[in-house]
Amino acid sequence: MISRFQKYLFFAMLLACVVMAAFLIRLRNRAQDRLQAQAAAAPAAMASVGSSLKTVILYVPNDLDDSLTTVERSLPLPADGNAQARVVLESLMEAYRAPASTHPINVASGVNDVYFLAPQDRTGEGGQMAVVDLTGALAAAQPSGIEPETLTLLSMMATLHANLPAVTEVHFLIDGQPRETLAGHADLTRTYLASEAEQRPSPAMPAGAVR
């Protein structure tokens, strides 16, 4: 025969176990979110250590008139070139995901890494080839179409070239692997010349404009 006291004790202990389990699960989720946020902010954190504030130029696309608009931002840039390139591109991604973005791509982190190689000798001008390893999340969030995909690539190429003039060629990977297109249209199998960003689409003419 189990006494009433023992029954109460058993149920109280069971309740305590359930509450503790729920508390631990919540703590675990919060820790996971914190780690993910730290990973996403790694370039900024890397930049803030022993780096000075510098003005960078971002080429922000506008889907409505097919143009690239220059925006200046002050960022703490690290000394390392690869890290600099990553910080600059992540800053561009911030512009993509801003609430009033003219080229909305809602992705937390769009660049895995940037590597520099000797360029394929096509122009004979020297310089460097930047291999930009984009995240699969960026490719998944990228709106599909020739115009939006081309604008994304041109804005990254122009931004890289503006802040790291030695970059003359750019090649794109997705999660470390070559891929045929960004989101079904823009060709990622080829290496782009950074100067191609200067041939960006002209602003749209207003309807009814006389040419």
Binding site: D66, T181, G208
Partner: peptide
């Protein structure tokens, strides 16, 4: 094509792209 679309009062943008 650009001229014809502009004549039809349709906004046009021009660009270069690498698309198969």
């Amino acid at each position: 094509i650009d001229s014809a679309l502009a004549h039809a009062e349709i906004p046009v943008s021009l660009g270069r792209a690498s698309v198969e």
